[in-house]
Design a protein around this nucleic acid. Structure first.
Lengths: 242, 242
DNA sequence: TAGTGGTCTAGACCACTTC
DNA sequence: AAGTGGTCTAGACCACTAT
């Protein structure tokens, strides 16, 4: 690690090599969520680099929300608690600005064969199996979201057996060792169909926001596709352009 | 600047003080967009701090897109060119992923008194004047957005006289010295009204995405409110959750 | 070749938390 | 008082750009 370690594809700084090694330890669950990492000085000693180089790697991982740094206490592996979900992944906010974590009522959990659309989005091979979860989510007691989650059976084997908790990313993490690191959402306005309108206590043809999310795991794999059909009277999708 | 400079409200690191001074020079137009800043070493000498401290201030400003750093060339003041607008502020993307800068056809430019809603959003006093711009924007030749822009007359005096270019943030910058630094967007799904449907070649009642943007200038003032009514067949709003 | 930003090091001290 | 991350410094060398 003391060597410059030139790479065929340009130049890879030492702090990036350090970061890659630390990410590996997250992937291997060597350091599970909530775990306290060794101090910068200890890591520097272990890896044979200076404390400043370790620092740069840790700072970059913290900026990607993989770690949480707390002065005086230490550096911790980030957790998928409700607060993180609420701010990083749940963008629907009441018009008065209040952020509320939605409650969920599961409608169905169905194993099935992946169709062409699923295979394309989740990068799955022919004949792959998926699990589809359908649930209604409520904000302040009012049903406002019809959610359809599609995940590869290979990534979450046996997901269809057992409870589906409200915070499903916490389950992915705890039961399957899969950490959702980031996501991409595509939004459109659509007219509600009869069935969805029924779930939401609205009328067929009413406008609704459809959020098409693809969630990416720590290792870069797409691990979940989620379609959310949302009523937006009283709520809005909040997007910060920074 | 060599003093720790303790503050009544906690502790303000030296690099933040340096950053504040550099931001002031941007605000004062001492360094206009596109300008090449002095090198890190020169700035460090001028300000009486180490090069590493200047570096940290510049890095933070670059991460906020106020500056652009280019190895071997220098550090430049960011510009509001089309490319930046396209990636930072224009989130509507063709379904095949192509990013296209929209063309604009101005419908009206109207000075008026600010209503209660305008005053609330733009933090304006009673009896303030505003200018309202209405235009139709097209993607690939097809009209898909009805845009209503509301700006304080006090911030952009005389805006109503003269051409409204397609890239209006470039105009704010060049003609009025106002740099839009960030924005917040609130999205809802709505049913199209008859007039808007006419502009877009759609039918009244069709679902549309409404984007309610508040743009914030470099100094933190809200300087523009923009309502965009968008058709989303063939296009979507792209949001990255990182 | 000269100048810029980017990386890396070593060491000092500060602010915050815990014991 | 001890340990952590956060700041600041000084200096060396590397990668990239322009001339």
């Amino acid at each position: 690690m003391a060597e410059p370690a030139p790479s065929a594809i340009g130049f890879l700084p030492l702090y990036r090599q350090v970061k890659d090694r630390l990410v590996q330890r997250l992937l291997s669950r060597d350091w599970p969520p909530g775990h306290l990492l060794p101090s910068e000085t200890e890591l520097a000693g272990e890896l044979g680099v200076s404390q400043g180089t370790v620092r740069k790697a840790l700072d970059e991982m913290a900026s990607e929300r993989l770690l949480v740094r707390r002065q005086g206490r230490g550096t911790f592996v980030a957790e998928h608690d409700e607060e993180r979900i609420l701010f990083q992944f749940f963008k629907l906010v009441a018009d008065d600005g209040a952020r509320v974590f939605p409650e969920s009522r599961v409608i169905s959990v169905t194993p099935a064969a992946a169709d062409a659309d699923d295979r394309l989005n989740l990068a799955l091979p022919e004949k792959a199996r998926i699990v589809r979860i359908r649930r209604i989510r409520s904000l302040g007691g009012r049903p406002v979201i019809v959610e359809t989650i599609t995940v590869p059976h290979s990534v979450f084997p046996g997901l269809e057996h057992g409870e589906i908790p409200n915070n499903i990313y916490g389950l992915y993490n705890a039961r399957f060792g899969v950490t959702v690191a980031r996501a991409q959402e595509k939004l459109k306005a659509v007219a509600l169909g009869a069935e969805d309108a029924g779930f939401l206590g609205a009328s067929a043809g009413d406008p609704a926001l459809i959020i098409d999310r693809l969630a990416i795991a720590l290792d870069g794999r797409p691990v979940e596709r989620r379609l959310s059909l949302c009523l937006t009277d009283g709520f809005h999708y909040l997007s910060d352009l920074t």
